[in-house]
Every structure is written in structure tokens, then in C-alpha cells.
Write a protein that binds this DNA or RNA. Structure first.
Lengths: 213, 213
DNA sequence: ACCTGAACACCGTTCAAGT
DNA sequence: ACCTGAACACCGTTCAAGT
């Protein structure tokens, strides 16, 4: 059964488009990822992309999915108790987003309905129900942790902090010391707020767990 | 002290631009808010807007600030204990965002450095320190609650849920029953996840409070 | 001071045409 | 099947010109 020799291989592939889009977003920001710019980066003309994706949003969805696919899910294999697993997963999730901050604003908008997001939701749901959580609560836990982690990533990584002394009027905002609002402090505030919130969430869920089981 | 009579009053004002932009975003979505479309809505030509704002992002910042300004802060007046106040504020915050879902993706990106956001951060910080929280923790609490609330609003209100049976393959995602992913279920999942997470956060913070004071 | 039209340098997407 | 150039209907923003 022989076939004709394949014609010269295609210039593009979905994988190459996604990888190049992610690199471009990482290096020059989300606004740099236009179809025309991305195509130029790939050495083709703009409309070529439409042979592989139906829309620009489809491309960004795939990029977002590639980022979410980096999240470690191995802590849900049953070796750890649920609070430990949830904590480890949250940190891995946040780290995956921190590695690609410029895609976070897009990623945070969609519900997690792409493959990697569903795989993640499935892993959390499975581990929580296995640990004894009722299914309805297990669903909620997956959602609320995602809210917290993506919200944290958005606020932390998205836009720079304007270090403008006149913005922070001590008369208008008597409780906010200037020191609390300096740009260089922001990252440690974000980090501390994330860890404090993560612990509070897991501890608070543990209270509910003890009350319902 | 008389002055010359004012010449015909300006066609535009910052207030009118912001109000019209918010209405347009509410009714037709964020992409409908282009400078040209907004100007047309206001009965002027596109470039006129630049007499009142330096950039389109400045306009959207002001719109976001107007939404945040709707958040009730009266629960921080000292009548309630801090967990009650934090809970009431969170619900008011979420409700303000739910009233204008289309602006949330923009709003969630910036740190809360506009007037209404700073007023809010100041109120939370003031109430938490007054209740006995150390300043560093009070700052973190304001930030982490914002992460959770904006993250929740983004995921809940931003993009519709695709009700596509083929997306949810029971082989690929064995733990996720189809019923859990139907569009009509989504809103109640979001609501339940928000309330579960809010309670967990406040309960978990109460544990930390008891341990540090 | 405030608004306008014209212009610049872009967009996302469609489509007929090429191979 | 996959890529191209041309085209359409848009963008945000600048700027000289008007009042």
C-alpha cells in the first residue's frame, strides 16, 4: 500500500503557534501578541494562523491551557491528607502562573473548561471526595481555591505598582502608611497575603470538614 | 467682582464620559467600549475624549473606580466585630462587581491604587488594626480578601459556560459527572463556592487571630 | 478651552487565488 | 491542505486647524 510522497511539510503547527505565542507574551507582554505580529514571529503571513485556529481567542485559550498544564497534580495521588495536598497544589498552581504573568489576565477570565483546567478540577474533586467530602462541597472547594489563586496571581503580577507619592495622601487615607505602598514592598505583601490566605482557607475548610463528617 | 459670561458650556465632562462608558460596557460588553464608539455614544468625535483623559486606559480606570466606589464600607464603623465586618464587606464588594460584570476583567488587573480602592484598603486596614491585628497582618488581610473576591467575580461573571457535551468526556475526566458542568448549574456553584470560601477564610483568620493575640 | 477632520500605524478576519 | 496578498471594517492616538 504505497502513497504518494508527502508534499513539503507545513510551515506551521498548533504546537509551534502556541509555543511562539507564549514566548512572545512572556517577553513583550500580551498586547504584543497580535495575529500579525505572531505570524511575523513565525515567518508567515497573518491569515495563515486561521488554518490552525478559528480565532485569536482560540490561540490564547490554547496558550492558557499550556500554562495550566504545568501545574503539578501528583500530590493528589493519595499519599497525603487533603489539607496538605490542597496546600501543595495551590503553591504549584500559583508558581505556574507566576512563570507566565502576562497570560494571567486572559487565563483568569475563562472558567476552567479547557483540557488542563478540567484535568485539574477532576483531580481536586476526586481527591476531596476520596477524603470524605460530599460531592457538592468538593466541587465548591475546587472552584473557591481557583478563585483565590487566580485572583492572587492577577493582582500580584498584572500591573506594576505606581510609585507616586502624591497618590497616597496621608490625609485622605489616614491608616495607610507610605511604607506600606511602596513598589518594592508589593511583592512581599503579595507573597505574605497569599500564604496567609492559603492557610486561612485550608484551616477554615478543616473546621467545616470536622463539622460535617 | 464680575466676570465675562461663560462661553457655551463644554459638550463633555469626565463624569459624563465615565457614566456613558459604564452603561456601554454593561449593555454591550467591554469590547464595545472603543474610543470611537464611546465618542459616538456621547455625540462627539473620537479625539474629543483626549481633552478629558490622557488615554483609554485612564477612562477605564475611572470606570472601575466608580464601580468600586459603590462598595459599602459602613460595616467598618466599629459597631461590629471584625469577622462580621469582613464578611459583610466581602458580600457588598462582590455585589458591586456583580452589578457590572463586564468591567470586572479590567478592574481585576490593576492593584487597587485608585481613590475608591485606596479608601477601601484604608477602611479594612483601619478596622483590622483597631480590632487588634498587627499592621502587617492587617495589610495582608485586605489584600487576600481582594484576591478572593475579584477572582471569584472574574470566574463567575466573565465568560459564559460552554454547554458542550463533547467537551466533558467521562473517560478523560472520570470524577466529573456531566450534571456538575451544565451551564444552569454554574451560577449556583459560583455562589456556593463564594460563600463556602468566605466562611473558610474568616474562620481560618479567626484561628490565626486567637493564636497571635 | 474644547472640539473637529485628516492622518498614522496599527488591528482581527474573510476570501479568492495560488501550490 | 496550507499559505498568500488584497481587502474590509475596524482600532488608539496625534496634530494642525477651527471656534
Amino acid at each position: 500500500m504505497s502513497r504518494m510522497a508527502r508534499p513539503r511539510k507545513p510551515l506551521l503547527s498548533r504546537e509551534r503557534i502556541v509555543a511562539t505565542a507564549l514566548t512572545l507574551a512572556d517577553e513583550e507582554g500580551l498586547p504584543a501578541v497580535s495575529t500579525r505580529r505572531l505570524a511575523a514571529e513565525l515567518g508567515v503571513s497573518g491569515p495563515s494562523l486561521y488554518n490552525h485556529f478559528t480565532t485569536k481567542d482560540d490561540i490564547l485559550d490554547a496558550v492558557a491551557d499550556a500554562v495550566v498544564a504545568q501545574v503539578d497534580l501528583s500530590m493528589f495521588n493519595g499519599d497525603r491528607d487533603w489539607p496538605d495536598a490542597l496546600t501543595a497544589w495551590s503553591r504549584s498552581y500559583r508558581a505556574a502562573l507566576a512563570a507566565h504573568p502576562n497570560i494571567v489576565p486572559f487565563l483568569a477570565q475563562g472558567p476552567g473548561r479547557r483540557p488542563a483546567g478540567l484535568r485539574m478540577a477532576d483531580a481536586v474533586f476526586g481527591a476531596m471526595t476520596a477524603a470524605g467530602w460530599p460531592p457538592a462541597q468538593a466541587t465548591r472547594i475546587g472552584a473557591l481555591m481557583r478563585y483565590f489563586i487566580t485572583g492572587s496571581a492577577l493582582a500580584s503580577f498584572a500591573r506594576g505598582f505606581v510609585n507616586d507619592a502624591t497618590t497616597y495622601d496621608s490625609v485622605a487615607y489616614p491608616h495607610l502608611g507610605q511604607a506600606h505602598l511602596l513598589a518594592e514592598r508589593q511583592q512581599s505583601v503579595d507573597e505574605g497575603a497569599f500564604e496567609t490566605g492559603l492557610r486561612a482557607l485550608v484551616d477554615g475548610l478543616a473546621l467545616q470538614y470536622a463539622a460535617t463528617t
